[in-house]
């Protein structure tokens, strides 16, 4: 956004933010979404206890077994894949990895974005111009294209994947942090503390950050599902998480080859992706409406 005190009715065109979302505010839907997120978190935390089999364990006599509710056996409730590996166990491990990646990347981009936003607000002038030009650049380039090139050429280490996904969405935090910091500095508490003689570290760490934390957290809930979708997309293309590790996206990618014979391999991870992004989006929208009317 341009100058904070100005009434700007919509984001500048160079920055195509996610369109505003307004979900129905049915508490029932939110409760369901919260329940789903809690379940996913539990699954991720207790993955080792919940897995019926090791996720790499082969069961060659039971290859491509359908799920229990499709004339399969309860030995493999969600069926098995082409090597007889248990789909449920792989799903549980995938949920854990996908959530870890998405969580790490979201934290990273929030940190980077907030820091850069503060830098822009503090120094103004050309530092601000650079940050905003970078933000425009980031918002204008399809992230998938950038990510594709970087990943394929630097290899597919998990750390790099998180780092790369951590660049997604930073510009939104940067804009928010910059705008709020500028307005806090223009006439508000930050200006007051500054004229008390406080150092910048104190102003931003002790005052500005706690004051804008709720807005940033709401933004995180809106970026998080996008990161999950990105990771799954990259993994689907074979350029994200690499075997033997498994994530929701690469389960779908590998399951695709058995679409006609064993659709269950990809249907369960696909359902988890959809449900999780849906649930986080619903909760994010709800949180935003509840906590933070400044974000639209």
């Amino acid at each position: 956004m341009p100058e904070a005190p100005l009434p700007v009715p919509s984001p500048p065109p160079a920055s195509v933010a996610r369109p505003p979302r307004r979900l129905s505010k049915t508490p029932g839907l939110v409760l369901f979404a919260l329940g789903w997120i809690a379940t996913m978190l539990l699954v991720a935390l207790l993955a080792d206890q919940l897995m019926p089999y090791a996720y790499t364990a082969l069961d060659l006599r039971n290859r491509l077994t359908p799920p229990a509710f499709l004339s399969g056996t309860w030995a493999h409730p969600l069926g098995t894949d082409e090597l007889g590996r248990d789909v449920l166990s792989r799903l549980i491990v995938s949920i854990r990895l996908s959530l870890i990646i998405a969580f790490g990347a979201t934290m990273l981009s929030a940190t980077i974005g907030t820091l850069l936003g503060f830098l822009a607000a503090h120094f103004r002038g050309w530092a601000e111009q650079i940050v905003m030009a970078l933000a425009d650049f980031q918002a204008a380039m399809p992230f998938l294209i950038l990510a594709l090139s970087v990943l394929a050429f630097f290899g597919n280490a998990l750390g790099l994947l998180v780092l790369l996904l951590g660049l997604h969405g930073w510009e939104r935090y940067a804009r928010i942090a910059r705008g709020l910091a500028i307005s806090a500095g223009a006439q508000g508490y930050a200006a007051a503390v500054r004229q008390l003689g406080a150092s910048s570290a104190r102003i931003y760490g002790r005052h500005v950050l706690p004051n804008i934390a709720s807005t940033l957290i709401v933004s995180m809930t809106l970026v998080f599902p996008e990161v999950i979708l990105l990771e799954s997309g990259l993994s689907f293309l074979g350029l994200g998480v690499q075997p033997p590790s498994t994530s929701l996206g690469n389960m779908v990618g590998y399951g695709r080859e058995y679409l006609t014979r064993a659709p269950w391999i990809l249907l369960s991870p696909a359902a988890v992706i959809v449900m999780t992004t849906f649930a986080v989006s619903v909760v994010g929208d709800w949180l935003r409406d509840r906590l933070d009317p400044t974000l639209r």
């Binding site: 508490y189 150092s199 004051n211």
Partner: peptide
């Protein structure tokens, strides 16, 4: 040299108790 502002609500950090904020200049200096 200190300033007293027109809008006391804006000049105070709404997330900190008054006592903490009154003590802040002492901490800073």
């Amino acid at each position: 040299m200190q300033m007293v502002f027109q809008d006391p609500l804006g000049a105070l950090d709404r997330r900190l108790p008054i006592g903490v904020q009154v003590a802040e200049p002492l901490e800073i200096h």
